[in-house]
Design a protein around this nucleic acid. Structure first.
Lengths: 348, 348
DNA sequence: CTGAAAGCGCTTACAG
DNA sequence: CTGAAAGCGCTTACAG
């Protein structure tokens, strides 16, 4: 059906000189009570076909749309969820956000967006979240225990996306970072690699910690040499760390295990362009995430692809369930990643 | 100042068993009227220091935060703006979104996010926008004239981000795409390039149209050969189009003008990896946008960098002005791009 | 400076 | 099925 907002709006402004039509205006035009108008816009309410037609016609004429703010105030449900997300520059998150919007739209729920520069901003953001009476929170940001309790005590359902709280009873959707990284490393060991440089993400990232742990656990006792590098998920630092390693006289790695794709790209570019290294024959490089750019001709990364769509769907479902049924206990869902066999590393 | 949400929330739940505190609760605890509480949380209202202290103490005890929904209903200002954004996978938009959030936060305004898959979804989205009584709209999506009028007639300020409406009196912030592209092409011509392949974006993108126009205008009569390719801003199609050109027996370009960075990357990778072309000596490649990845070692693109931060700041300011002063006439602001001289093309 | 009161635009029992 | 009425949690003139 093609809508004609121009015509509707013109009619509205003609009749109410600029002010938006309310349910009372519609009721007057339709010749029914305001209650009837309200019921007409609530699914499942008892209303006769005749009344419905009258109301719909009047609403169309006036360009009426129920005021979601007023509805939220009286019903106690705003139909808004807060999405807290850090590192929007991470190539992975835009897709997550886009997918979240798609899934929530299907249930007629809006997203109030909060992007965070540093993890420390959460407190300030949460104050705003309380004010807007959101129905729930999806957090792709690190919370303290106190912040988690604050949500629980206010009765606001909370689901974490790719954040790990082993000791806390809080709902979360997560990729199995540890096992994914373990599988990559296993494939590299089987192929005969023995000197590993493991490049982690920011120190405060539990996701990076899990990935690094997965790598180190598997390597312990099997690799001849292991070096751990403190990265920050960025391309630039990955380049610098790679240079450090290559300049080092002692340690000669035959595999770089980067805990995200961006760093793997920086590592790969530096190895090839600045040191003329043949990848993967001389040195293998693996990433993690499965961002679009991992499949670009120049990179063709061997990496772990997160099942983003299924993870987002799970997060949305879990949140919706807890909005409907606040007593529901916490649940942690762990999704296996899928290994992408690119040409940056051969796995056996 | 370190907040302690846990303690505040505990106090709140202890006193009101689960329900959030209202201004009446605070008034009761503070021993003042509800009006006084309201004033205390409104900047610039007349209230004595003594009352303020009493209210603030009570609010702290109860974990009270003003209900923004109720405030929005009575004041007619929701302090929410809608951000409509397409192509979140475009490497440029995440930064825009992050920057928009930062700037709006400073004025205590929230973002209701709407991501769009196709331009055709705008009508459905606008219906939701009306319902939430947003104070204004930032649109990085294409609107029809009817959709623009709908906003105007409802009195909702609207500012476009990087969308061009030459014949419409609507506010917008835009990079000077045409001039930026013209400057790139001029540099290529001066350097001696004469056979150009111009790769445009999606047909419905006015931004791509402006960039393409800038290139073609300058080339007309100066280049020996010009071929226009219909791209879609994506890496994959850029690769395929590049292959088509290289397989073509007749047309031998010495320059690829891609209307965004992603396509330039696809083009560059394909030329080098699949055809062993030396860039820029054999063929030059230029992009547009100045995304982070343009500076990566492997690409080092010659491109036009959009002054993203200034553009976002301008869009936010223009919208805020129009929220305060709805009578304000439309204004179009055009920002010059900055040429980044990379190694994918030498400009003279 | 302070408080009582009206009202923002809805939803939802409650009678009829 | 329908309408009158209360009330969600605020802001804001209006008296005092």
């Amino acid at each position: 059906m093609v809508k004609q907002p121009t015509i509707k709006a013109s009619a509205a402004s003609a009749m109410l000189d600029g002010k938006r039509a309310t349910s009372y205006d519609v009721a007057r035009v339709a010749g029914v009570s305001q209650s009837a108008v309200s019921r007409c816009f609530k699914s499942g309410a008892s209303i006769s076909a005749k009344t419905r037609v009258k109301v719909e016609r009047a609403a169309e004429t006036l360009g009426y749309q129920p005021n979601a703010i007023a509805r939220g105030l009286i019903s106690g449900r705003s139909n808004i969820v807060a999405v807290l997300i850090t590192e929007l520059t991470n190539l992975n998150y835009p897709q997550v956000l886009s997918e979240l919007h798609r899934k929530f739209s299907e249930c007629d729920i809006r997203i109030l967006l909060f992007t965070l520069d540093k993890e420390s901003d959460v407190d300030k953001v949460l104050d705003k979240v309380w004010q807007y009476q959101v129905d729930g929170i999806i957090a792709a940001a690190q919370f303290t225990e106190g912040q988690i309790s604050a949500c629980q005590e206010r009765g606001i359902p909370l689901v974490f996306y790719n954040r790990i709280y082993p000791q806390s009873t809080v709902s979360s959707v997560c990729c199995d970072h540890r096992e994914g990284e373990r599988a990559l490393v296993e494939g590299l060991l089987n192929e005969g690699r023995s000197a590993f440089a493991v490049m982690s993400g920011p120190v405060d990232s539990t996701v990076s910690a899990a990935r690094t742990q997965g790598a180190v656990d598997r390597l312990e006792g099997f690799a001849k040499h292991i070096v751990e590098l403190e990265g920050d998920y960025s391309y630039g630092l990955a380049c610098r760390l790679t240079r450090q390693i290559m300049a080092d006289g002692d340690f000669k790695p035959d595999a770089f295990v980067c805990t995200n794709d961006i760093m793997a790209m920086g590592c790969l570019d530096t190895l090839r362009i600045e040191y003329g290294v043949a990848v993967p024959s001389d040195i293998a490089v693996v990433g993690f995430d499965g961002v679009d750019a991992a499949a670009w001709l120049n990179y063709d990364l061997t990496t772990v692809v997160q099942p983003l769509e299924r993870m987002v769907q799970a997060a949305v479902n879990m949140l919706l369930e807890r909005i409907k049924e606040p007593k529901l206990l916490a649940e942690k869902r762990l999704f296996a990643g899928d290994i992408r066999h690119g040409s940056s590393a051969i796995l056996r």
